[in-house]
Computed example of a mutant assay.
Amino acid sequence: MAREGVSDRLIGLLSVRGEDLGAEWADKVTGSLGGRVSRAEVERELQEIYTALVAALGSGSLEGRGEEYGEVRALLTELSRNRALQGFTPTETAGSVFALKEVLEPALTGKDSDVPAYLEFAGLLDRLGLFTIEVYTRTREELIAAQAEQLLELSTPVVKLWDGVIGVPLVGTLDSARTMTVMEKMLQALIDTGSEQAIIDITGVPAVDTEVAQHLLKTVVAARLMGAECTISGIRPQIAQTIVALGIDFGDIATKATLADALRHALRRSGVAFSRPAPQGGAR
């Protein structure tokens, strides 16, 4: 008697030979992963999936999308996320599901075969395998986005150079997303340190075009709204020539060739007095 396309023989086989089939499945998957995950860990993961799968098949559905497959999909989601975080490929991840077809093939396509049931079950495993790839892809995208955000944070440090003076050394291309991060971190640092002077150093910025200049101007304006003054340092000869050629106007924003010059300028504006050191030695 068939149960909506799933034969009693198939369900019986999966139930009665569950331990043997599960062990063979774990062996195949462990081998395909090159030993990077322990046999015990693989067996634990697959045994949970196997048990949930047999229970879902008892409903007679082979779609793999209904509520009866909720636990199966939850376990496959966990498996896919773990594989993505461990650095496995989508093929290796989906292969963990597809390997069950290889395990069942001899039992269902040999003597006294039940080929229709095998083909229907294989189709179910194909759908579940594609589901693992979807979850894997989402996880990798989330991981890449998180890493990009971390790199953005690391590439835009704000440091205290002196009492009342903070510095923002920029390295690489300055785009809209990074400008927002720089602005937020710099404004927060102005509040946290009570500073009234900020130095934006663009020595590590490879080129300055109109867009980059607009980003810098927005940052300076935001700082001024907080009651702070900005100095832009790192204006190399090539950068200066480009700014002139593009007709970019920094207005009354102070610009300096080096960070040292900018720091000296910021300290003077803060009221710090400089004096030349007395000459060493001399006639007695």
Rank of each mutant, 00 (worst) to 15 (best):
A2M: 13
A2Y: 13
V6R: 03
D8Y: 02
R9I: 01
L10T: 00
G12A: 08
L14W: 04
V16A: 13
G18P: 12
G18H: 14
G18L: 15
E24G: 08
A26K: 00
K28H: 07
K28C: 07
K28V: 10
V29I: 02
T30G: 03
G31L: 01
V37N: 05
S38W: 07
S38D: 10
S38Q: 09
E41S: 12
V42D: 02
V42M: 00
E45L: 03
Q47M: 15
Q47W: 15
T51G: 11
T51R: 14
A52R: 01
A52T: 07
L53T: 11
A56G: 07
G58E: 06
G64S: 09
E68V: 07
A74K: 15
S80M: 08
L85N: 15
Q86C: 11
G95W: 02
G95D: 04
F98S: 10
F98A: 10
L100F: 15
L100E: 09
P106N: 02
L108M: 08
L108Q: 05
T109Q: 04
K111P: 08
D114N: 06
V115D: 03
V115Q: 02
P116Q: 07
P116T: 05
E120L: 07
A122I: 02
L125W: 04
L128R: 13
F131S: 04
T132R: 06
I133A: 01
V135L: 00
R138A: 10
T139H: 13
E141D: 14
A146C: 12
E149G: 14
L151D: 11
L152S: 14
E153D: 15
E153A: 14
S155E: 15
V158C: 04
V158S: 05
V159F: 03
W162R: 00
V165Q: 05
I166E: 03
I166N: 00
I166G: 00
V168Y: 00
P169D: 02
L170F: 09
L170H: 08
V171T: 11
G172M: 09
T173D: 09
R178T: 13
R178N: 13
T179V: 12
M180I: 14
M183K: 05
E184C: 15
K185A: 11
L190P: 07
I191E: 15
E196Q: 11
A198Q: 06
D201M: 02
G204Y: 13
G204T: 12
V212K: 08
H215R: 03
K218D: 01
V220N: 10
V221R: 14
A223Q: 03
M226L: 14
S233I: 01
I239L: 10
I239Y: 07
Q241I: 08
I243P: 06
G247T: 10
I248W: 04
A254V: 12
A257G: 12
A257K: 11
L259I: 09
A260H: 12
A262G: 10
R264K: 05
A266Y: 05
R268A: 14
G271H: 05
R276Y: 14
R276V: 14
A278D: 00
